[in-house]
Design a protein around this nucleic acid. Structure first.
Length: 636
RNA sequence: GGACCCAUCGCCUAGUGGAUAUGGCGUCAGCCUCCUAAGCUGAUUUCCCGGGAGUUCGAAUCUCCUUGGGUCCGCCA
C-alpha cells in the first residue's frame, strides 16, 4: 500500500511528459502540512521549470484533469483540489483504515519497514558509547550518551543493519591515579562491601576526596601558581627562567607539590608495572567496572565488545611511525612526531608521539579505529561523543584519512547537558549520578502511584514505578533534537505531565483498560492485556472499516499510516527524537479520539471497528516504545 | 586572537526552501452517575523565527555581515 506511488502513476498518465515519469513524479508528492486537511500535496511551483507554466496554473489544470469519471476508477482517492499552487490529495479514509489496520494486525514490524527501499543494503555499523573514565560513576551526561547510543543502535538494527555496540573504558592515566592516591591516603582497606556502597560510587567518593584535598592544599600555593602561570604565558623571549625555576621549586616543597609529585610517580610506577600500584589499580578499576555494568543493566545496554585503554594506549605508535616513514607526519628537533594541518577548523599542528617517545590519547584512537575495523570490518563507525570534542574528532578523522583509512566515520556530536547551576563537573558534587536520577524518579513515581492506588501490592508499586521512571527519563532525553544543549534541573525538569514518557504510557494503559473492561463485558476484544495474549478468534477481515468516519478517527488513521516513513527518516538521519515526537502525536491523537468516541457503549459493529483501531494504536505504540527499550504498562 | 555551534510567544520546544510556524509548561475558566482526570476542552499571547542585507516565484530553513550566548584551540585524558 503506497498511495503516493499510485498517485504518481495516475499523474504520469495525465501529464504524459517524458521528463516526468511516475518514478520521478513520486518525489514531488509530499505529505501534506499538518494544518491542512489533506493527505498528500504537490507544490506545483516545483514543476514550473519542467512544465513551463506558473505553479497555480499547473495545480488548476491538473485538478481539472481529475474528472469524476477518472476518480471513479480510483476509489482510494476521495478528492483532489487545487489551493493556489498546491494540489491536494485526499485519500479515502475508509480504505486507508482498512489497509493500514490490516497490515498492522498481520505484522507490525513488517509494516514498520514497508517504506524501506527494495534495494536496501544492510551495512555493518559500529557504535561506540559511552566510553567513560573509570574513576567515578556514570553521570547525567553519560545518560544522554547511553540513550542516544542505544537508540542509534536499535534504530539501525530495526531497519536491517548489523550493529556492533562497543565501549572504551578509559582506565588509565592521571585521573585514575587521583582516586587511587586518595584511596591510598584515606581508604584504610575499606571496600564497597564494608561501606555498603555501589562499587563505582565508592571509587567516585575517592575522586571527590582527592579534589577536596587538592583544593585544600592548593590554597597555600595559590599566589605562586598564579605567578608561575603568568610567567609561563609570556613569549619565550620574555620569560624569566630563573623566576620560573624558583617558583617551581618553592611549589614543589609544599604539600601541594608533594601531592603532584606522588601522582606523577604513581603514573610512572603504573607504566613500569610496579606490583603494589598495579594491584591497587586493578582493584579499583574492577570496582568501577562492576558498578558500570550494573548501570548498563539498568538501561539494558549490552556491548558487543569492550576495549580497555590500558591495553591499547601504547599501540598506536607503529601507525604513527609508519606515517612518519611515508612522510605524512614530521619529526621535530626534540624528537616529537607531529601532524600538520592547513584545513580550516583543524589545529595547525597535533603531537602524535611525545618527545620522550610516549604516546597520547589520540595515538590510541588511531589504533582503536584500526582495531575496530579488524574486529568488525565495518562500513560505518559512529562515535557517540559530546560536541565539546568536535575538533578532536575532526582531527582524528583527518589523521585516519591521511593514514589511508578514509572510512565512513561519523562523530555523533550531541549537545551539552547543563545543570541549573552551570556545567556539570565531576568534582564537588555539581554532578548528578545516573543511578541517583533513576532512583529519584522512581521515588517520584512511587508517590504518584500510591496516591492513586493506596492498597496496591508493594512489589507491583515498585515495578510500575521503575517502568514509569525509566520511561520518563528516556523520553525526556530523547525527545530533544540531539545537537541541542539542554538544561537539566533535577528538582523540576522531569514532570509526569505534558510531553512526557508517562503520558505515552498512560495512553497505552488506557487502551489496555478498554480491552480489560471489554473482556469483563464478554465483548470480543483483539487483545487481553492481563495475559499479554492476542485473541486468536479475532477476525480483522470481518470488521467494517467504513464506520470509522469521525474526524478524530480519520486523523488517527492518517497518523498510523505515517509510521513507516517516520521510522525510515529517523533511522537514516540518526534522529531518534523524530520518533519520540511521533509517539507523542499518536498518544495525543489517541487521547482526543478516546475522549470523543466512546467504544464499549456503542453498537457491536462500530465497537468492533473502534476496538481494531485501538489495537492498531497499541501495536504501533509498543513497537516504538520497545524499540527504545521503554517497557509499556498495561495498567497505570 | 582563531575555529565551530546555538538564538523560535513569559518559559521549554518541533520545524526535510513552500500554505495561517509545532507541541508542551505556566496562568485563568470549564469537564469525572460515562472505557483510568498522569487526561480533555476553551481562554490567555494575536505576537515571535536575535538584528541587517542578499539569493529565490517563495527563507525560521541557504549565503554574507552583525549582536548576544556556548564550546574548543595541551607533548592532558
Amino acid at each position: 500500500m503506497n498511495y503516493a506511488e499510485s498517485i504518481a502513476e495516475i499523474l504520469a498518465d495525465i501529464i504524459k511528459n517524458p521528463d516526468l515519469p511516475a518514478s520521478k513524479l513520486v518525489n514531488f508528492i509530499e505529505s501534506a502540512n499538518k494544518k491542512v486537511n489533506a493527505d498528500f500535496t504537490i507544490i506545483c511551483f516545483k514543476l514550473q521549470k519542467i512544465l513551463k507554466l506558473k505553479g497555480p496554473e499547473i495545480a488548476q489544470n491538473l485538478a481539472h484533469e481529475f474528472t469524476p469519471s477518472l476518480l471513479a476508477k480510483y476509489p482510494m482517492i476521495e478528492r483532489i483540489e487545487a489551493v493556489g499552487p498546491y494540489l491536494n490529495f485526499h485519500i479515502n479514509k475508509k480504505i486507508m483504515a482498512k489497509d493500514v489496520i490490516q497490515e498492522i494486525f498481520s505484522d507490525v514490524h513488517k509494516y514498520s519497514l514497508s517504506k524501506m527501499f527494495d534495494n536496501f543494503k544492510p551495512q555493518k555499523i559500529v557504535v561506540e558509547y559511552p566510553s567513560p573514565n573509570t574513576n567515578k560513576p556514570l553521570h547525567f551526561g553519560h545518560v544522554r550518551n547511553m540513550l542516544l547510543g542505544q537508540a542509534l543502535s536499535r534504530m539501525n538494527s530495526k531497519i536491517g543493519h548489523f550493529v556492533y555496540e562497543t565501549n572504551l573504558l578509559n582506565d588509565r592515566g592521571i585521573h585514575i591515579c587521583k582516586s587511587m592516591w586518595a584511596y591510598q591516603k584515606f581508604g584504610k582497606n575499606r571496600t564497597p562491601k564494608t561501606e555498603g556502597k555501589k562499587p563505582d560510587h565508592f571509587v567516585g567518593d575517592y575522586y571527590v576526596k582527592f579534589a577536596i584535598e587538592e583544593n585544600r592544599l592548593l590554597k597555600e600555593v595559590e599566589e605562586q601558581l598564579k605567578e608561575l602561570e603568568l610567567e609561563k604565558k609570556k613569549t619565550s623571549e620574555m620569560q624569566d627562567f630563573e623566576k620560573i625555576n624558583k617558583l617551581q621549586q618553592e611549589i614543589d616543597k609544599t604539600p601541594y607539590g608533594q601531592m603532584q609529585k606522588e601522582l606523577q610517580q604513581m603514573l610512572i610506577d603504573w607504566e613500569n608495572h610496579v606490583p603494589e600500584v598495579r594491584a591497587l589499580w586493578k582493584k579499583m578499576n574492577s570496582w568501577a567496572e562492576q558498578g558500570f555494568q550494573e548501570t548498563f543493566q539498568l538501561f539494558n545496554i549490552k556491548h558487543t565488545k569492550t576495549y580497555y585503554e590500558s591495553q591499547i594506549y601504547d599501540k598506536g605508535k607503529n601507525l604513527v611511525l609508519q606515517g612518519l616513514k611515508k612522510g605524512i607526519f614530521e619529526q621535530l628537533s626534540d624528537g616529537a612526531i607531529v601532524a600538520r594541518f592547513s584545513k580550516k577548523g583543524l589545529p595547525k599542528q597535533k603531537v602524535l608521539i611525545r618527545s620522550d617517545g610516549t604516546s597520547l590519547y589520540i595515538t590510541q584512537d588511531l589504533y582503536l579505529a584500526h582495531q575496530k575495523y579488524d574486529d568488525f570490518s565495518y562500513d560505518q563507525s559512529i562515535y557517540v561523543i559530546g560536541n565539546e570534542q568536535n575538533m578532536q574528532m575532526k582531527t582524528l578523522f583527518e589523521l585516519l584519512t591521511k593514514l589511508g583509512m578514509p572510512l565512513n566515520n561519523i562523530h555523533y556530536s550531541y549537545g551539552m547537558i547543563r545543570l541549573t547551576s552551570g556545567k556539570m563537573k565531576s568534582r564537588e558534587g555539581t554532578v548528578v549520578d545516573a543511578d541517583d536520577v533513576v532512583k529519584e524518579l522512581q521515588e517520584l513515581a512511587k508517590n504518584e502511584i500510591k496516591k492513586r492506588y493506596p492498597f496496591l501490592d508493594l512489589l507491583e508499586v515498585n515495578n510500575r514505578a521503575f517502568r514509569i521512571a525509566m520511561a520518563a527519563l528516556r523520553f525526556f532525553i530523547l525527545k530533544y533534537e540531539y545537537t541541542r544543549d539542554f538544561i537539566f534541573d533535577p528538582e523540576q525538569s522531569i514532570s509526569f505531565e505534558g510531553e512526557t514518557g508517562p503520558y505515552i504510557l498512560y495512553a497505552y494503559a488506557r487502551i489496555c483498560s478498554i480491552f480489560r473492561k471489554g473482556l469483563e463485558k464478554k465483548i470480543p476484544v483483539p487483545y487481553n492485556p492481563d495475559e499479554n495474549s492476542v485473541n486468536q478468534n479475532y477476525q480483522v477481515s470481518s470488521i467494517d472499516f467504513n464506520l470509522l468516519i469521525h474526524e478524530e478517527e480519520k486523523a488517527l488513521i492518517s497518523l498510523l499510516y505515517q509510521y513507516p516513513d517516520k521510522l525510515k527518516y529517523a533511522a537514516e538521519t540518526l534522529r531518534p527524537h523524530e520518533l519520540m515526537r511521533y509517539l507523542l502525536d499518536i498518544a495525543q491523537y489517541f487521547t482526543r479520539f478516546y475522549h470523543v468516541c466512546p467504544i464499549l457503549s456503542e453498537n457491536s459493529t462500530l465497537q468492533a471497528a473502534r476496538l481494531a483501531l485501538c489495537e492498531a494504536v497499541r501495536l504501533i505504540l509498543k513497537d516504538i516504545l520497545n524499540l527504545f527499550e521503554i517497557q509499556e504498562l498495561n495498567e497505570m
